[in-house]
Amino acid sequence: MTGEGFALLAALAYGLAGVTIVRGKATAQGDNGVFLSVAVTAAVSGALWLGWGQVAAASLATPGAVLPIAIFIAAGLFSMVLGRRTMYRATEQIGPVATSLLRRLTPVFALPLGVIFLAEVPGAKTLLGAVLVIAAVLIYIGRPSEPRGGAAGGWWLGVGSAAFYAMSYALRSGGLDRLPDAALGTLIGAGAGMIWMLSAALARGRVRALLVDRGPWHWLTAFALSAGQIFQFFALKSASVVVVATLGSLEVFFTALLGVALLGRPAAGLWRLILPAGVAVVGTALMVW
């Protein structure tokens, strides 16, 4: 399969995850499978590293590996703990489509972080793309295709999730410069996330909340999120970042279509989504061109 095909599959997988988070919430008794999703990500990334890893295990015991491992741990806490948890809560409150569109803000937040941590100064085209993505979000907020339900906090959680993921991407990029293995970096980050979540749950006496949600929708969400990461991994091996990021923006449309099929959302909302989602696609393409 081509890189473009893998990029489309990644967007479809992430779109599916957004919808299944909502389905899983109906039967959730704990964290709605957040911890399960992190555990599955750790298992899948570990398998990728063992099968196709570029960094040997022996290299991790060298002094030069200490800093990148620490960076991957920090990246994992931002993505697996803060980013994923807020993404789940935002999806539950404002729906998968709105949360998917808010995730388009991740590269926008990554711009200033890239300047601070990586000394990457964006050009005029990149800045224009960021403005278009912000405009797309504002357009959608002004004419949402699904009810807000008074959950204003969900919008802030979605924005926060994008910011947390942007921070994790900036950190992970710095770690990959020193230890170039994306699967290993994801494994370390997911492992750190699991340890943090377990420790916090033990301190509060709420370990059961991490383990109780193991229904079909929770498992499907976990594997969909992991599949999205795998497909992106392979897409970037044979397609440009521009193509992968642009096709990834189609996640918003996939989420809306799957919402109609699995959640019974009205199809009329799809028409109101076309303008903001289209603007977001163009803005994303400009940012990574």
Score class of each variant (00 low, 15 high):
residue 5 G to W: 15
residue 6 F to E: 04
residue 7 A to S: 11
residue 9 L to K: 07
residue 10 A to Y: 03
residue 12 L to G: 02
residue 12 L to S: 03
residue 13 A to R: 00
residue 14 Y to L: 11
residue 14 Y to T: 01
residue 14 Y to R: 00
residue 17 A to H: 04
residue 19 V to P: 10
residue 20 T to F: 07
residue 21 I to G: 02
residue 22 V to K: 14
residue 23 R to L: 15
residue 24 G to I: 10
residue 27 T to F: 10
residue 27 T to D: 15
residue 29 Q to R: 13
residue 30 G to S: 07
residue 30 G to M: 06
residue 31 D to G: 02
residue 39 A to L: 15
residue 41 T to S: 15
residue 41 T to W: 06
residue 42 A to G: 08
residue 43 A to E: 12
residue 45 S to V: 08
residue 50 L to F: 10
residue 53 G to D: 09
residue 55 V to Q: 06
residue 56 A to M: 11
residue 57 A to S: 14
residue 64 G to N: 06
residue 65 A to N: 04
residue 66 V to F: 12
residue 70 A to D: 05
residue 71 I to A: 03
residue 72 F to L: 12
residue 73 I to V: 15
residue 79 S to A: 14
residue 85 R to M: 15
residue 85 R to H: 14
residue 91 T to P: 06
residue 95 G to E: 10
residue 97 V to K: 09
residue 100 S to H: 02
residue 102 L to S: 09
residue 106 T to C: 03
residue 113 L to M: 11
residue 113 L to E: 00
residue 116 I to G: 07
residue 117 F to D: 05
residue 120 E to Q: 15
residue 121 V to S: 09
residue 123 G to E: 12
residue 127 L to F: 13
residue 128 L to N: 12
residue 129 G to P: 06
residue 131 V to I: 07
residue 132 L to R: 00
residue 134 I to E: 05
residue 142 G to F: 12
residue 144 P to E: 13
residue 145 S to L: 12
residue 145 S to W: 07
residue 148 R to V: 13
residue 149 G to K: 08
residue 151 A to Q: 14
residue 154 G to E: 07
residue 156 W to A: 12
residue 157 L to M: 14
residue 158 G to Q: 05
residue 158 G to V: 02
residue 160 G to D: 10
residue 160 G to E: 09
residue 162 A to N: 05
residue 166 A to P: 04
residue 168 S to F: 05
residue 168 S to T: 02
residue 171 L to C: 03
residue 172 R to Y: 10
residue 173 S to A: 14
residue 175 G to I: 10
residue 175 G to V: 11
residue 176 L to A: 08
residue 177 D to N: 13
residue 183 A to R: 04
residue 184 L to P: 00
residue 184 L to R: 03
residue 188 I to D: 00
residue 189 G to N: 03
residue 189 G to S: 09
residue 190 A to Q: 06
residue 190 A to N: 03
residue 191 G to F: 06
residue 192 A to C: 05
residue 192 A to W: 01
residue 195 I to W: 01
residue 197 M to D: 01
residue 206 R to Q: 13
residue 208 R to W: 08
residue 209 A to T: 07
residue 212 V to P: 02
residue 213 D to C: 06
residue 214 R to W: 11
residue 215 G to E: 11
residue 215 G to W: 13
residue 216 P to N: 11
residue 219 W to A: 01
residue 225 L to V: 13
residue 227 A to F: 13
residue 230 I to C: 14
residue 230 I to W: 09
residue 233 F to S: 06
residue 234 F to N: 01
residue 237 K to H: 08
residue 244 V to L: 05
residue 245 A to P: 08
residue 245 A to W: 01
residue 247 L to A: 01
residue 251 E to F: 02
residue 257 L to C: 10
residue 257 L to Y: 05
residue 259 G to S: 14
residue 259 G to E: 09
residue 262 L to K: 12
residue 263 L to Y: 12
residue 265 R to T: 12
residue 267 A to N: 09
residue 267 A to H: 08
residue 270 L to V: 03
residue 270 L to S: 00
residue 273 L to N: 12
residue 276 P to G: 11
residue 277 A to R: 03
residue 279 V to Y: 00
residue 281 V to Y: 04
residue 281 V to D: 03
residue 283 G to Q: 00
residue 285 A to Q: 08
